[in-house]
Simulated assay, not measured.
Amino acid sequence: MQVLTDKAGDVVGTYRPPKNPHKEDPTFAIHGGPGYEVHELEMPEEYWDIESAEELHRRVGEQLRSQR
């Protein structure tokens, strides 16, 4: 999962590439602008079932803080 954080370390966006993209599918990457940082994380499968962006960002933020 790609995670975008702001200067305070708060998660402001996430992106998960498809597991098995088709040959013709576009690819994406997050690039942080000034004051933002992109992190690459391996997250447990249960995170993919979280429907609320707010809940996902909270839990991913906790994961990031635990790795520092």
Rank of each mutant, 00 (worst) to 15 (best):
R58D: 05
Y47P: 00
R59W: 00
G33V: 00
Q2H: 02
G35R: 00
S66R: 14
P34H: 02
N20D: 05
L64M: 08
I50K: 04
E42L: 07
G61D: 02
D6K: 00
G9T: 11
D10M: 09
N20Q: 10
L41G: 01
E42I: 06
H22P: 05
T14W: 03
T5R: 03
H39K: 04
Q67N: 11
A8S: 14
E24S: 10
F28T: 13
V60Q: 03
E51W: 07
G9R: 14
I50N: 00
W48M: 12
H22A: 10
E42T: 14
W48D: 11
G13A: 15
N20V: 07
Q63Y: 11
G9N: 13
V38K: 02
K7G: 05
T27R: 12
L41N: 06
H39T: 01
E45D: 15
E51T: 10
E37N: 10
Q67V: 09
P44L: 14
E51N: 10
E51Q: 13
P26A: 10
D49H: 15
E55C: 03
Y47N: 09
E37I: 06
R68G: 11
A53R: 05
N20I: 09
R59C: 01
F28I: 13
Y36L: 01
H57P: 01
L64N: 08
E42G: 06
K7I: 09
F28V: 12
V3P: 02
K23E: 11
R65T: 05
L56N: 04
D10A: 15
K7S: 10
V3M: 03
G33H: 05
R59L: 06
S52M: 08
H31Q: 12
E37F: 08
E45V: 15
E51A: 12
E54P: 00
E42V: 14
L64I: 07
D25L: 09
P21F: 01
I50W: 00
D49Y: 15
T27G: 12
E54N: 02
E45Y: 14
G33W: 02
G13D: 11
P17E: 05
R58W: 06
V3D: 00
V12L: 03
E62A: 12
H31G: 07
G9A: 13
R59F: 02
P18W: 11
E45P: 05
I50S: 03
Y15T: 07
E51H: 11
Q2D: 06
G9M: 13
D49V: 11
